[in-house]
Simulated assay, not measured.
Amino acid sequence: MTSEFERVYKDKYPVNIDKLLETTCKNSGSDLHLAVGIPPMARIKGKLVPLEFPVLSVKAVEELVMAVVQPEYKRYFEENLELDLSYSLPGIARFRGNIMKQRGTLAAVFRIVPFDVPDINILGLPPAVKDLCFLSRGLVLVTGPTGSGKSTTLAAMVDLINSERRVNIVTIEDPIEFLHKHKNSVVKQREVGLDTRSFANALKHVLRHDPDVILVGEMRDVESIAIALTAAETGHLVFSTLHTQTAPHTINRIVDVFQDYKRDQVRQQLANTLRGVISQQLIPTADGKGRVVAVEFMKDTPAIRNMIREGKEHQLYSAIQTNRNMGMQTMDQALANLYAKGKIKKEVALEYCIDRVEIERIMQRVESNSSYFWNN
């Protein structure tokens, strides 16, 4: 005889989607996963944990998921078999959702987005990152795997600009996550699918809105990357994201998207426009109660611009390592710093590092010189 928790509901599911999202928030989860044959799962402290609700049937998942899909989007999902969306629970949180088909059934994930934009000073970023918010032009990239906090970092940077500068900010997002109020700046947020057809289409027309700062939620294809580079080249400050692990990988990823005959031109554009790359990971804390961000930071210098222009990305990591006095740090330096401060365990630092030999060397140096890093 199966328990209430194990039984697959074939009739109406006992709770609605709002209750599942609220429960995820109350358990300090970051994501809610829905799929047939398992109970609702929440990602808590980086790990998937089943919530105390019954196993989901085909009908249950469909009813739960479709309850948050607006009528105009249902046809889009039927045609494309996947859909990005946003949803809000007043007084609780906003959510970024994605629905897809798997093995002929629906599956969905909802990422929790707090109502309040985080203060950049509490995120654990290198202090020099804030300087990028006061540039008049150029390209700034925030990179990392899914769920590494890229959107949070970008939102905090936009909020700093919004608070401290008098400029026109236009964002293009899929979907809109953090909601920005007008402060000293004007902020216009456009959602792909609702306010514009695509990132590329929005970027083509964004310059007509007299922007000073442009945020592109993700540079997804050749066209959107090319337009973002051109916008940065023509006197705008452009922020965007990529799913890459390190600054050198980011340069390679952008260049490799283009055909061979265009790559030299793209390298030249990157050398001229790239102002900074922030690569981050969320790492389990030493006490097991949460996660802390580890950040690699590269900013433009004459030497780094030359390396990009000449296709010497393999030398970038060394350049970052040797320019700590300019606020830069590699991912391995960031992990060693967190370990030295007792925020993460040594075995965790080794698990998330880029170069095991290099991080062990840094750790030995840190243990003999506690002032090796700045405090952040």
Rank of each mutant, 00 (worst) to 15 (best):
P284G: 10
F297C: 06
E223V: 04
R197T: 15
E191Q: 15
I308T: 01
R263E: 14
T301L: 09
Q268S: 14
V257L: 12
L207Y: 04
I283T: 07
T273M: 01
R267P: 01
R291N: 07
V266T: 02
I225V: 15
M307V: 10
I225Y: 03
G288K: 11
V295M: 08
G290D: 13
V292M: 09
D210I: 04
Q268E: 14
D260R: 11
I304P: 05
M307K: 13
I251Q: 05
Q259H: 13
V192H: 02
R305Y: 12
I251S: 07
D260V: 10
H205I: 09
Q280V: 06
D210Y: 08
V213S: 05
D256R: 07
H209V: 08
E223S: 09
D260C: 00
R305W: 10
Q245M: 14
R267S: 06
H249F: 10
I308E: 07
M307E: 08
V255M: 08
G276Q: 07
G235W: 07
V257Q: 11
I278D: 01
D300C: 12
D195T: 10
R197E: 14
V206E: 00
I308A: 05
K262F: 06
Q268A: 12
T230E: 04
A271I: 11
R275A: 10
T301S: 15
P211D: 01
R275E: 15
I251P: 04
N201T: 11
D210A: 15
N306L: 13
S224K: 04
S198E: 06
D287Y: 11
T246K: 05
I251L: 08
A231L: 13
Q281D: 15
G193I: 02
E218G: 01
V216I: 13
N306T: 13
Y261L: 00
Q245R: 15
Q259V: 11
G193W: 04
V206W: 01
T250G: 02
L237H: 05
D210P: 00
V216L: 05
V213W: 03
V255S: 03
I251T: 05
F258C: 04
R197I: 13
